[in-house]
Write a protein that binds this DNA or RNA. Structure first.
Lengths: 346, 346
DNA sequence: GATTAGAATAATAGCGCTATTATGTAGCCG
DNA sequence: CGGCTACATAATAGCGCTATTATTCTAATC
């Protein structure tokens, strides 16, 4: 007489699995799986039976099991400096919209401008065997680069263009933004220029805009230019403080470019308080074209970065790469440019 | 003579697995797994050997395999109306900071205020066996509720409080915001009040603020109040348009509450253009205390919702629930309140 | 020094799904 | 009408990890 077989293992589990669906539809699990992955390969009758079973059982697929079996997931990992920042929020939103259409999920992380955190975030991102990784900017640690290269995952670097690219990139040249701002102010007859910047020590892209600005301004005959900066994140309050410092240190200033529109808005308000006429006595150029810029008084001349387009193009590259996964991956660099919106403030 | 055994299956795989690490450290995979999950249970010598092996091999754990085996993941799924919206961006950032400390990953989705999309997003979220789900607001479809209830996953509803809660909630009462704005204007001696709102048909929380405003205003003796709205999302531009409509339709208006600070900013700019003195002829109250509100000219009286605190508290509840997963889950409702910041505009 | 609790490590058995291969079944041709 | 292709479905064998159970190995006790 055999000893009663003891129940040995007890495992947690999903309530409804693909096996339950298959049983109810009187088909094999393989066919149900196929129904999800390649619906066209399943007959109409089978499809209907499966759909009914799914509905009746309220089946929710387990994407972790699927991803493990397929050795890949439908997750796209996005790492931005900050979600609080309207620029990146716009790009993230666009990415999510476009990727969502292909049933790709967004996993979001932010570095809060601490670049050395990026490696950990990338490591965690790769733990999910993502379909692609989106990074902000071009400067990444050697370890981060190695991790990503070894993983063979498609990479898109966004919001900045430069000389090197890991895989794909979508963005624009920030030094050109600074150059454009300077050129515009000079064209408006301004000779004493300032760049007001926030957090330039951490925000490399803003720093590059400042450099481009200075370069163009100092190469122009009869024009002088300087940078005034503040370590805090950009805000209207910081903009007001910077404007005060500007008129104190450089009373003859007549052209100002700001690292972004928050700063510029602060400048506008502070000039109203100080009775400095814009644009008569002082021309102001911003960066960002934020939601308030066109409605400001005076309306703000600004340089608009195509945050939305960056997201859309990045998504397009990712999707193209995924659909063409057998083909030789080819590098892609998309320069989205930017546009100067000339309004009342200059 | 046996036929040569043909190679049958070929599978994609991770380059370095926990088995490789174990082999290199001359330990079993179990011990390596333990090293990750309960480091204290592994001897110092073993820990060191494992750490060395991980480093040498550049091992990246596969969280999908881990999640599948453990029947749970370290993902927290967050569903907000819009990441473009500074309010939610702040909360998402705070959540991410706090959850990140516990090695919990954020998976983000947005509905763009289309409530009927929420069910699909929740379904996808649940496919990852998340450790928790965070939803915005209290109104969810019956199917969404059922999905979530059946999943037994901890739920936190944020940014709104009301009579019912699915599981846990962190937020405040939006009708009280409207009441506070109205009371404040009345206290400042204003009798002809307006609420300027954007997208009230989709943004239920803004609509509730409007209701609260109207209720309090109309219950006050000698006070009249109306709502003017615009279907577009809130922006300074819309604010300017609404102010124009306001002074046209109600020339005697002397107190305005706005559905948020973008609207209020537009009102301020438009009043500057029209020569309407704030606060002498018109008092303005906003909602949000956005980055520009304190720096505006005049500085904007506004009601500050604690977006950051909401994120922190939500994270706290989630972490507490996860750490106490064996205990009876207990409902929790946290009223974060909000605060009126009295500045120059009223 | 035999006994044993406790700590550390190892073996075992899947988690739920997909990719691959195998099988069955029509449809078509010479 | 045998044989072949194309299509639909099923069987098979894991993906890389964790939870459980089993086995050591140490250290403490009498």
């Amino acid at each position: 007489m055999a000893a009663p077989k003891p129940i040995r293992t007890r495992r947690k589990m999903q309530r409804v699995t693909i096996m339950d669906v298959a049983a109810r539809a009187e088909l094999s699990p393989s066919t149900v799986s196929l129904y999800f992955r390649k619906p066209d390969a399943v007959s109409a009758a089978a499809s209907e039976a499966i759909a009914r079973a799914i509905d009746a059982l309220d089946y929710v697929p387990n994407l972790m099991a699927g991803g493990l079996a397929a050795a890949s997931s439908r997750v796209v990992s996005i790492i931005v400096p900050s979600v609080r920042n309207a620029f990146f929020a716009e790009t993230v939103a666009a990415l999510q919209d476009e990727l969502g259409k292909q049933r790709l999920q967004v996993m979001l992380s932010h570095t809060e401008y601490k670049e050395h955190d990026e490696e950990n975030l990338v490591r965690t991102a790769l733990s999910w065997a993502p379909a692609a990784v989106v990074l902000t900017g071009l400067s990444h640690s050697a370890a981060t680069r190695r991790l990503l290269r070894d993983s063979k995952v498609p990479i898109v670097e966004i919001w900045e263009l430069g000389s090197t690219t890991m895989d794909m990139a979508v963005g624009f040249h920030h030094d050109q933004v600074g150059q454009t701002a300077a050129s515009h102010l000079i064209q408006r007859g301004r000779k004493r220029l300032l760049f007001l910047g926030a957090r330039l020590h951490e925000d490399r892209r803003a720093a590059r805009r400042a450099e481009g600005f200075l370069e163009t301004a100092r190469n122009a005959p009869g024009v002088t230019a300087d940078i005034i900066q503040h370590p805090a994140p950009a805000s209207a309050e910081v903009g007001g403080m910077l404007l005060n410092e500007a008129v104190h240190r450089f009373p003859d200033v007549n052209g100002i470019a700001c690292s972004n529109d928050h700063i510029a808005l602060g400048v506008i308000f502070e000039c109203q308080r100080l009775g400095i006429a814009i644009p008569e006595r002082l021309s102001v150029v911003g960066f960002g074209d934020l939601s308030f810029s066109a409605a400001a008084n005076p309306s703000l001349t600004t340089i608009r970065p195509p945050g939305d387009l960056i997201g859309k193009e990045a998504a397009r590259l990712i999707i193209a790469r995924i659909l063409n996964s057998d083909a030789q991956p080819k590098q892609a660099v998309i320069d989205t440019r930017f546009s100067l919106l000339h309004r009342q403030s200059s």
